[in-house]
Nucleic acid binder design. Structure first.
Lengths: 195, 195
DNA sequence: CGAATGACAGATATCAATATCTGTCATTCA
DNA sequence: TGAATGACAGATATTGATATCTGTCATTCG
């Protein structure tokens, strides 16, 4: 029985996600989470020192799902770097667009949380940029790319494609021009990277 | 004497800007503007049909100041396209950064207004993109740039540099890495454009 | 004895009553 | 006669009294 299972951080995070989905970021309370689990809110505070810590943990969890999905593409050293870079960027854009399109309210909720958790987001961006750096470095090693410093180039590529992954632009992702804009951006950046 | 001058749209816009500076976008009212001018609010409605129209006009005015400043660089056909493109992007970044840094509250106010006036902003972006297109087209004509379609490339360059002109990123502009990031972005994009 | 509770103080949010604002228009003023 | 006014209705914002929430901790429970 779910209700008699021991109270773990993981179960609290699941309940928190559910409460956030139902109530939105502004109205989701720790009391709501406790109610959903059938425990007192004091028990939740045993696992998370503050409400902010709980929100941070649930945000990290969400961000990590994106990072993990992309890591496979970044790490696949057997494929040629240009294709890998194109695939990685396309996968990032597609994933974000799907999340935003499938459940706009939950996406908006997590966008608000991400806005609060600047630190967690910075870490997430670092992770993604490291994945990009790996691809660029592989490309340089293979003679396919030119770059003075793969980390700098990767950062530039990530920032230049912000329009296609930053939640601030989510409203533009279903516009008719989005795909053409994305293709033009990737083509221009890859021309810039090629040896 | 100012108080006895005829009431013109221009004078109303000046007063509106002042009221916005003082009260911010949320609390600035048409009544405030009328009070600042020493007239009844009915008189303001003679020149602007709605409060939204007044806000749109004052926003356009603000956006146009940026466009005009950059038009000189874009139109100077005597200088080489690569330098002109670098200068144009640097001028845009510098102008935005200065506005945001010198008077953060007014900048935040206008950012809110820009968020409301989607149409006016779209026109402004079209203008800037046309200026960029002129530079890219000149570069292609001179054999310095490669581009299938200068308008598409210009759009890609503008979007890729969004981090350095979109008010959503204003908070990042005074970070230590901003200049290095900008340089890396411009270098990468110019490598992509060169013939 | 460690996990869970629930009462509590201070901080934050909600709600309904009140005040202000937007947009109109018949009237005044120069 | 055309520009300006100010009273007005409906919509929006402010306020202050009330309810809920956050975070703690002495106590209970298994």
């Amino acid at each position: 029985m779910a209700a008699t299972e021991t109270l773990t951080a993981e179960r609290i995070l699941e309940a928190t996600e559910e409460v956030l989905r139902r109530h939105g970021p502004a109205k989701a309370t720790v009391v709501d989470v406790a109610r959903a689990l059938g425990v007192s809110h004091g028990s939740v505070y045993r696992h998370f020192r503050t409400k902010a810590a709980l929100r941070e943990a649930v945000t990290k969890r969400w961000l990590d799902r994106t990072s993990e999905a992309l890591d496979g593409i970044a790490g696949d050293g057997s494929r040629d770097p240009e294709t890998r870079l194109r695939d990685w960027l396309a996968a990032l854009f597609t994933a974000k667009r799907r999340k935003a399109g499938d459940d706009p309210e939950l996406f908006a909720t997590y966008s608000v949380l991400a806005g609060e958790q600047v630190g967690a987001v910075a870490e997430h961006i670092d992770e993604l940029t490291e994945q990009l750096t790996r691809i660029v470095a592989d490309g340089v090693a293979a003679g396919a790319f030119h770059s003075e410093d793969p980390a700098v180039s990767a950062r530039a590529v990530f920032q230049a494609t912000g329009r296609f992954h930053d939640p601030a632009y989510a409203g533009e992702w279903d516009r008719a021009e989005a795909d053409a804009d994305f293709a033009a951006a990737v083509d221009l950046l890859l021309r810039g990277l090629r040896a």
